[in-house]
């Protein structure tokens, strides 16, 4: 038996071949996801600053950020931002998908147009929104003033409540197509027979939606909400471009605060602790989502 054929026979073993086949994917995952994550966790337990590797400090950075009202405010707004934006995207995305699932003239163009907010570069759309929300030059204010609905421009970004609400609206606008297209795919996979049977049984439109559409969309809903929540909870570009975390830190979220502390201010350890902390929320979120699926 030659050396080559011996090697060949080892490759024939499903065990060896299996490991070899998954090796590239495993290396990629380890290199691009596991390593940075572990490094981030390690960094969060050091006193590292830009230019200095620092020393191991255990959970000190976490104690510091937990005592920091700016961090607590950022955590609160991150959750608020995610919950409201996801609720808005889910409701409006589903409504849009139901509309686009109907046959009408220009249906294809409407579906393509719907994707625009999703495909446009985030920073560009954020800049466009910055103009729309500008206290002096807002087209929204201009329209409302000229329609005599309001007497002076709205101050969208000037107060904590309005700035937060504005950012949630912008996030909904941007993420809406993701839900709509996901739900549209889900709707098209539901057999027409079910609706016909329901119609024969005298079900109303609402009953058909409640008993057929919504239950069958549950799996796709889980996936959409889970993925979109991760994107929303880690959103940076929209907020940094529009408010930079202001006014008075009212719109800081985990990512903007982590960037400000770690990169702009050079506190790598503290910044890493802030960046790592949403993992707790992710686990809680994943737990609730998975439980709801199991119950269903």
């Amino acid at each position: 038996m030659t050396g080559g054929s011996r090697l060949g026979s080892r490759f024939d073993s499903p065990r060896v071949l299996g490991y070899l086949l998954i090796a590239p994917a495993a290396i990629l995952l380890l290199g691009l996801i596991a390593y940075p994550l572990i490094w981030g966790v390690w960094l969060s337990m050091t006193s590292a600053t830009l230019g200095d590797t620092g020393a191991f400090v255990g959970l000190h950075n976490y104690a510091v950020i937990l005592a920091d009202p700016v961090f607590r405010g950022a955590a609160m707004f991150s959750v608020l931002y995610t919950v409201f934006a996801e609720a808005g995207k889910l409701a409006l995305g589903l409504a849009l998908a139901l509309l686009l699932n109907q046959s009408f003239r220009g249906q294809r163009s409407a579906r393509a147009l719907m994707l625009l907010p999703w495909v446009a570069p985030t920073v560009l759309s954020a800049l466009a929104w910055l103009w729309l929300l500008d206290p002096q030059f807002s087209a929204v204010s201009w329209l409302l003033v000229h329609l005599h609905v309001i007497s002076r421009n709205l101050d969208f970004l000037g107060t904590p409540a309005t700035a937060r609400a504005s950012l949630i609206v912008v996030n909904i606008w941007r993420g809406l197509p993701y839900f709509a297209i996901g739900y549209l795919a889900g709707l098209q996979s539901i057999s027409k027979d079910l609706y016909e049977a329901a119609a024969i049984d005298g079900a109303t439109g609402w009953q058909a939606f409640r008993r057929i559409t919504w239950p069958l969309l549950a799996p796709i809903t889980t996936i959409l909400v889970a993925f979109s929540s991760i994107f929303t909870l880690t959103d940076f570009q929209l907020i940094w471009t529009i408010t930079r975390g202001g006014p008075t830190d009212a719109t800081q979220v985990f990512t903007t605060l982590a960037y400000q502390r770690a990169i702009v201010s050079g506190q790598l350890g503290e910044g890493a602790a802030i960046a790592i902390s949403p993992i707790v929320f992710m686990i809680v979120l994943a737990f609730f989502v998975m439980r709801s699926v199991r119950e269903r």
């Binding site: 970004l157 000037g158 107060t159 202001g246």
Partner: peptide, 22 residues
Amino acid sequence: MIPGVSGWLDPSNNQAFLAGQC
């Protein structure tokens, strides 16, 4: 002051001034 200054970033006052609003 003109309303909205609490949301102003660096270019905002330049724009408002040159637009004759400030």
